[in-house]
Design a binder for these strands. Sequence first.
DNA 1: TCGTTATATAGCATGAAGCTTATATAATGA
DNA 2: TCATTATATAAGCTTCATGCTATATAACGA
Lengths: 113, 113
Amino acid sequence: MTAPLPATFAALADPTRLSILNRLAQGEATVNDLAALFPISQPAVSRHLKVLEEAGLIERRIDGTRRPCRLNPQALAPVRGWISELERVMEMNFARLDALLATPERTDNAPDT
Amino acid sequence: MTAPLPATFAALADPTRLSILNRLAQGEATVNDLAALFPISQPAVSRHLKVLEEAGLIERRIDGTRRPCRLNPQALAPVRGWISELERVMEMNFARLDALLATPERTDNAPDT
DNA sequence: TCGTTATATAGCATGAAGCTTATATAATGA
DNA sequence: TCATTATATAAGCTTCATGCTATATAACGA
């Protein structure tokens, strides 16, 4: 259910949706709960929830006429993973640069093709 | 220099910009380097870089007529932080729920002091 | 100074996102 | 079955992001 990274980030790029997620960290909430909490209409909330659901960030269950939402705790793992990978690559290249600079007698300026 | 979270996420929401960041993890690159790497025009790359810079995700230096970009390693810390906080709150509430369910004789709806 | 290279900006077209109101669907309860 | 409540969808509007081409600016080298 984890969406591609750009889609996940797009879902996170809206302040209202971030607030919704922050709220959901405290536990389930229905569409109307959320609509009461934010200064936008109920249809607007429904759309935000759809975006969040399609990004895999929330899940919903059916309780009579209600459809309470809750966070999907795993959805943010790819984000963590991407950041970690980015930092890993970055440090790898810092390390290489350091190694290069640590051998000053050999200024190996590889002639850029 | 760290932008508000929604702005950061918005900057990360574009596939081309994500690719640019991935590339920059390996080291500096100029606008033209990047323009050659992706199937979009140089002006389009310039705009993407502007977005990334305004989000604090990259920094630039001046080298003659070039303006090489590099990652700002600190920019993603708030993202990590937000995720951690979200998970913290979530687990806190799981714990409270567990505690509640573990004491069935005492349905202590403690009004939080 | 002049031509070249590197980057930025302007102007425009297009498509997507977000909002609203109005309405449809679905489950509940009398 | 009918009214009510909860949520979803439709239609329309506005704003914004992205891409392009054309052009401006800036630094360099001769």
